[in-house]
């Protein structure tokens, strides 16, 4: 029995297949521009064939739900939810940002992915990796790059190393290194990418805890509800909301949606 992790939110199309004990059996990552939609299903087919497995061997799907490219993330999420629906198995959403950060789980310090979200903003979150513990200190959100340095300096302990990764990492390092308290900023990676083995590692533990046997019913019930976490309204929608609410509200550039919102409804607030 196996779990399949899929992420297409960034420049990488990444797949990982692992067992319930957390062992990765196969993990493939490609970086072919604008080919995620073409290649995703054939690569799943290839991977299963290489492992001499069948889709019917899957007992769950782990979906990278973004943030990232709107069109990109929809491809992986659509495949994941359709797979879960068709096979009658559960699907677990995992943040693509979290998966990227989790690749640094052996480092000690703060891990901060900074992915370009246009107009001076980044998709970001703050994690702390320490003594084998990996915890989230700031939720996934679209934030103003320049302004977030100050927030980050209040989160970081004195002298704590901050690892940056993503296509805005160099810029973030430049902007933030003047901040007091952020003395050790290391650019760990300069590309925005996700590897599905990290997505798998994050998801499989949570999955193992709640995964009932296939025979126990109520499977795939969350397939219909699975959607990407864009962290941002469509531009036209943001503009419309702004107009509805009057001019004192924030413009579309500062419209931020946080997945923390427990109600599950999309809400807007300024950071």
């Amino acid at each position: 029995m196996a779990l399949l992790a899929i992420d297409t939110a960034t420049t990488t199309l990444s797949l990982a297949l692992g067992d319930r004990a957390g062992h990765v059996l196969a993990a493939w990552t490609t970086r072919v521009a604008r080919m995620h939609a073409t290649l995703l299903n054939p690569l799943i087919d290839e991977m299963l064939a290489a492992l001499n497995m069948d889709l019917s061997d899957l007992e769950g799907v782990i979906a990278g739900v973004g943030p990232g490219s709107y069109t990109g993330v929809r491809i992986g999420v659509t495949a994941a939810k359709t797979l879960a629906f068709a096979l009658g198995i559960p699907v677990l959403p995992v943040s693509s940002l979290a998966a990227a950060a989790y690749s640094l789980r052996c480092c000690t310090g703060l891990v901060v992915p900074v992915w370009d979200a246009r107009r001076g903003a980044v998709y970001t979150a703050v994690y702390r990796s320490q003594h084998g513990h990996f915890s989230q200190l700031a939720a996934d959100a679209r934030r103003d790059l320049a302004a977030f340095g100050e927030t980050l300096s209040t989160i970081a302990d004195d002298g704590e190393t901050v690892y940056l990764l993503g296509d805005s990492a160099l810029q973030a390092q430049r902007e933030w290194q003047e901040q007091s308290g952020l003395t050790r900023i290391i650019v760990y990676g300069e590309t925005t990418e996700v590897r599905a083995e990290d997505l798998f590692a994050l998801g499989c533990e949570r999955f193992a805890q709640r995964l009932p046997g296939r025979e126990e019913g109520s499977h795939g019930e969350n397939a219909n509800a699975l959607v990407p976490r864009y962290l941002q309204l469509a531009e036209a929608e943001a503009r419309w909301l702004q107009k509805e609410r009057g001019s004192e509200d924030d413009g579309p550039e500062r419209t931020i949606i946080s997945p923390d919102d427990r109600s599950g409804h999309r809400s807007c607030h300024a950071d």
Partner: peptide, 24 residues
């Protein structure tokens, strides 16, 4: 309706929400 026409990104988002629902 509120935009007076189809907004592609809004449409794409709605498709993801609906796709397995309509299949089912």
């Amino acid at each position: 309706q509120r935009f007076g026409g189809v907004v592609p990104e809004v449409a794409s988002r709605a498709h993801v929400e609906q796709v397995t629902v309509v299949i089912e």
